[in-house]
Write a protein that binds this DNA or RNA. Structure first.
Lengths: 133, 133
DNA sequence: CTTGCCCTTCCAGCAACTGGAAGCTTATAT
DNA sequence: ATATAAGCTTCCAGTTGCTGGAAGGGCAAG
C-alpha cells in the first residue's frame, strides 16, 4: 500500500512516517516500480507500535529501543520494564514540577483583581517572588 | 557592569542573555568603549523578571508581553491576568494529560514481570492498547 | 610576555516534527 | 482525449529555547 493508506491505518501523518524513516527509527519500506513507498501490514503494525509509544511520551530514541525489543523474540521483559520504569519516574517528576508551578501561578492569579487598574500582584510576583511568599 | 556580572545577578547564563537580546525579548544594553555590553541595575531587574516568568513556564513570547506590561505604568491588570489565566489553563491541561498517560503507563509497568522471560505486557500494550483495556 | 579568563560574533545542533516548493504519477471528470 | 486534481517524490527551511564551539580581541596577574 502507498504511504497515504499506511498513514490512515497507522494514524501517523505521511510526513512523520517519512521522518521516522529518514532518522532510522523505522526501516525503509519496499518501493513500487513508480518509486512510491510500498508498505506491508507488518510495516503498518510497527508504525502503530511507534505511534502508541510516542503517545505515551517515550522519546523517539526510547521508541527505537522498544521497537527493537518488540522485534526480538528472545528479549528479556526486564529490559522493557526498565525503560518504562525510567520513563514513568520522569513523568512523575514532570507532574510534580508542573503542580508546584501551578500552585504558585494559581496563587498569583487569585490575588490579582484583573480590572482596569495598573497595580498587579502577578507582575510584582514575577519581579520579586520573595514579595509574595 | 559586564555580562558576566549581569549573569550572576540575574541567574541567567550569558548565552541566554545574548539570545534574549538577539530575539528582541530584551532591549540591547549600552556598550562600553571596548565594545562590551554594559548593564544597569534596571537591566538586571528586567532579566530577573524574565527568568522568573520563564521559570513559571511562560513562553518567551508571553514573557515579552508581560515585560511590556511590567514597563507600562498605565497597564490594566486585567491584561496581565488574562495572560496568566490562559497559561494556568494550559498547565492544568498538561497536568491532566500527563496524569492520564501516567496511569496507563503505570498499569503496564505493574503487569510486567520484568524478568528474563520474553513475554511482556508492556510491549503487548504498545502494539495494541485495546488488549489491555 | 605569556597565561588565562572574559568578552565579541557567528555558525551549528538538539527534539520531533511540520510546511512549502518543485516536479513526478495516477485518478477522476468532462 | 484531455484537463484538473490528488497523491507521491525529494529537499530545504522553520518552529522553540536555548547551548556548544570556533575564532578572535581585551585585560589583569605573575
Amino acid at each position: 500500500m502507498n504511504i497515504g493508506e499506511a498513514s490512515k491505518l497507522s494514524g501517523l501523518p505521511p510526513k512523520t512516517i517519512r521522518y521516522y524513516e529518514d532518522t532510522g527509527l523505522i526501516a525503509p519500506p519496499a518501493r513500487a516500480e513508480n518509486g512510491y513507498r510500498n508498505y506491508t501490514d507488518t510495516d503498518v503494525h510497527k508504525l502503530r507500535f511507534v505511534r502508541h509509544s510516542r503517545g505515551l511520551g517515550f522519546s523517539v530514541d526510547e521508541c527505537s529501543q522498544l521497537l527493537s525489543l518488540y522485534e526480538d523474540k528472545d528479549r528479556q521483559s526486564g529490559d522493557v520494564k526498565a525503560i518504562a520504569q525510567k520513563h514513568l519516574t520522569e513523568i512523575d517528576e514532570k507532574i510534580k514540577e508542573l503542580q508546584e508551578l501551578r500552585s504558585t501561578l494559581h496563587h498569583l492569579v487569585n490575588t490579582c483583581h484583573g480590572d482596569g487598574r495598573p497595580d498587579c500582584p502577578i507582575l510584582e510576583g514575577l519581579a520579586d517572588p520573595a514579595s509574595v511568599q
